[in-house]
Design a protein around this nucleic acid. Structure first.
Lengths: 233, 233
DNA sequence: ACAAAAGTGTTACGTGTACACCCATGA
DNA sequence: TCATGGGTGTACACGTAACACTTTTGT
């Protein structure tokens, strides 16, 4: 029985499985993408997403988190599978499929020294250079997914510091959707969702008057979702 | 150079890559799922989604279409990547990841003889038996995706015959979302989208009066989308 | 006191929802 | 003629968008 089983599997071909990571950050009102210089052939020296081969004792998520930790020094980042790229000729080096994932990180938290040491670089999303293999397509797909998700799930908060102001949140959404929102309406909408906790502190970096800081209340969000609440921005 | 490249790839491990297919159909007002009896160890004889190993000269889509054609006799089905399942211990037989895809097919078109010959079976979506490996989870995820997509993209039509009535369309959506819609409002909504062409024929199978048949106009849909139109049911 | 950002209030409009109603037809 | 499903019309509630307006504070 076991013999037969092994034979059956063995009569098929294996492939390399890579995991590539589209890392988004938000800084100075701009969406950023983390890229670095490819260190292996083919196309050594080209810009590339960060990635790695998935090892036998890892799943895609574990693999991506390992690389992410290596390069940004960050643990506990938001990470989600995007799509698997399987074109036969996508990698000239070998038959290799890639499970792409996208990550959202609080850009002021990351270990700048580590990022630089690995030759990585935060590039502006409107100025993404030519990337290796099919990585540009991955970025396009990830951005589309981010836009789709941000509307129905509170993932935008993953890109902001713990405490943020309503105008900061608005500027993030304006960066994601590349358009302007009416500030009054945006504020009303976002507060009506009942997932923001107002703090006593103010942030005065952007105005004389200062804007109150808020915090995302994940517990409350979960409760609302469980009771059938439909989040939407 | 090439030597170094090959060495680099070779120092990593390969895996088996499978492609599993969640096949939805619609019949008698019910959503159906195509499953069949697994013919290989482990778990030979268990119910399973249809699937196969992805061959070296195939991408995931090609692979799924090959199996689908084999078992249903159908070409040109709607097929889209769902998600890739990579848990280390998901397959007891070997380290094997699976790229799941979901398909929507017009159930009255399929080759019934072929389906039966392969031991496949259309099961009711509310009565899915225990499936092998992580296939039950795949079905859950696929159903969620179908619900999400059907709201914003005209994929529902893939499950209906070429010509269908508005009440038929409504009954499909009721099956997908497991709730009832107001028929007047549903009709207004769906006709306001401007992608249905009214035919002269009537279908009298469900009422004495008969209901007019309609046809989905894909060209018109594409035009509307290109001009920024936002489809939503 | 004024510029500039934060924050509030008011109104008009379009869309979804509930529901009453008419139509066509075979038995 | 009546039961049944197909199809139309209307009235109201509500969320959104546009925009006028007030508040705060450093210079």
């Amino acid at each position: 029985m076991i013999k037969q089983q092994i034979d059956y599997y063995a009569s098929n071909d294996k492939m390399y499985v890579a995991s590539d990571c589209i890392v988004f950050g938000f800084d100075q009102g701009e969406l950023k993408l983390l890229i670095f210089k490819r260190r292996v052939e083919p196309d050594k020296g080209d810009w590339s997403l960060i990635g790695s081969f998935v090892e036998l004792d890892e799943d895609d998520n574990t693999s991506a988190k390992r690389v992410l930790k290596q390069i940004t020094g960050l643990d506990h980042v938001f990470l989600e599978q995007l799509k698997t790229y399987t074109r036969v000729d996508r990698d000239k080096g070998a038959r290799c499929i890639s499970i792409a994932q996208y990550a959202l990180i609080r850009i002021d938290d990351y270990d700048k020294a580590l990022v630089e040491k690995h030759g990585a670089y935060w590039c502006n999303l409107n100025e993404v250079p030519q990337l290796t293999l099919d990585h540009n397509q991955m970025v396009i797909d990830a951005l589309e997914e981010l836009r789709r998700k941000a509307k129905y799930q509170p993932i935008g908060f993953e890109l902001l510091p713990e405490k943020f102001t309503i105008p900061q949140l608005q500027s993030l959404y304006e960066a994601i959707y590349q358009c302007e929102f009416d500030s009054g309406n945006f504020r009303k909408k976002v507060l009506s969702l009942k997932v923001l906790e107002k703090l006593e502190e103010k942030d005065k970096s952007n105005s004389r008057r200062g804007a109150f800081l808020y915090q995302f209340n994940a517990d409350n969000y979960r409760k609302l979702v469980n009771s059938g609440y439909h989040f939407e921005i």
